[in-house]
Design a protein around this nucleic acid. Structure first.
Lengths: 237, 237
DNA sequence: TTAGTTAGAGTCAAATTGACTGAAACTAAT
DNA sequence: ATTAGTTTCAGTCAATTTGACTCTAACTAA
């Protein structure tokens, strides 16, 4: 029933290799409009298959850590990021994802805050691209990004992940910009404000964001905790 | 970056074993009230670890099939079921899920229709239990069932999976009973009807369910298709 | 001082929701 | 044949929520 392999002969000839990858989302100001848009970092493959192509950060599973830990560690090693939000996306196990060997990839998705996102510097092997225009990627990574985007939008309309894009204190306009960037449509500021204010998890601080060009907006704080989710899933940071 | 193992020495000493399990939900009339409640089938473990305990149906991954196919095949082999709905739930990869070896389990969840559910006969090695009272299970399967229940309830309030519990044609009262069983609270029949009628994916047939004790209800049909979801995810049946 | 822009409060009609009523259709018991 | 009981299904009504919009306060830059 369950694989308890009393002896080696019972095991299948060549078990699928296990890998971990991550789709990392961050908001960055658009080059054209200046408004924040969704971006993600890619790394360049340095060996076959798909050598020279861009791909999601990832690597093989190692023995001594949970899936979540493996994702977090690999992320730190490949991009230097320690995201505030890291959740399992999906296990991809199609037969021909990799041309050579059978690989099952457990893919996580992460949200990082703007201050952190700045830490993943561009280099010859790391570049940031707009989430809706990644260009052709290695393996089935285009499909994976597509699905991650769909999940992000889904969870945004429903839940409360928007705040993981932001720092501890934020303006209501910043939250609205997250919504607008992810859902890709404009939101009425007054109505959006009204909705947030009725949500009990938004707490007003007595601080205001100074240094802007216009009336200084009040800063707020998110006090809610993610409900439900898989066992062993804990918020980092 | 990605596991392409040019030579064996590069591979880690003992890669985690890969397994597939499934949480199968079906509605069955409660022994006490007669109203439908959520049940799921368990299989008895016939070897260590946890020999003699009840567990979710599952087995090791074999080489030549996708994860989805592996789940469907294993389900057919262990319980005889071919569910109308089969979706990936989560990949569980804690370090100590199995006492002997490191096992990563990719768990699917399924909804089966009452006619099909009757096919999975109880036997010495298969029993059906109420989803909210499974008793102690092998491995971390209690946590898995818990999480599957959470996901089912979540998706029910939002999406349109309720119909996968039912046959092609159904009464509105049957849909309501699905909601009541899964969400575990009563729903106002008139208001529920009104909501369903405004949904464009519900199509009225000109047939009525005869043989009941009271006014015969009209039969309806679900014409919607699941939107979004991971790539390579297709409805069976 | 004035023009321009954002923050934030408030208005109003339309749409949705929750609680409820009542007639119609059927069965089973009298 | 009549009646009681139960379910389907249409409809009412007040409360709440939503979308579109206005208006004033607060600030900066010209």
């Amino acid at each position: 029933m369950f694989p308890t392999y009393a002896n080696v002969s019972e095991r299948m000839a060549a078990p699928p290799a296990l890998a971990i990858s991550t789709v990392i989302f961050a908001l960055r100001p658009s080059a054209v409009s200046g408004r924040p848009t969704l971006w993600l970092p890619l790394v360049k493959r340095i060996r076959e298959p798909f050598e020279g192509m861009w791909a999601l950060p990832g690597g093989p599973m190692t023995q001594a850590e949970s899936l979540q830990d493996a994702a977090a560690r690999n992320l730190r090693e490949t991009t230097g990021l320690a995201p505030a939000y890291l959740e399992q996306l999906y296990a991809f196990g199609g037969l021909h994802r990799s041309p050579s060997e059978r690989v099952v990839s457990i893919v996580y998705w992460a949200l990082v805050q703007p201050t952190e996102a700045a830490m993943a510097q561009e280099s010859a092997n790391v570049k940031w691209v707009r989430a809706d225009a990644t260009g052709p990627l290695a393996f089935d990574h285009n499909e994976i990004v597509e699905y991650a985007l769909w999940r992000l939008r889904n969870k945004m309309t429903y839940g409360s992940i928007a705040y993981h894009f932001l720092g501890e204190k934020f303006t209501l306009a910043a939250v609205r910009e997250v919504y607008e960037a992810v859902l890709n449509r404009s939101v009425d500021p007054a109505n959006f404000r009204r909705q947030l204010m009725t949500a009990p998890q938004i707490e007003a601080t007595d601080e205001y964001l100074q240094g802007g060009k216009h009336r200084p907006p009040r800063l707020y704080r998110y006090t809610g905790v993610e409900a439900g989710g898989p066992p062993g899933f804990h918020q980092l940071s």
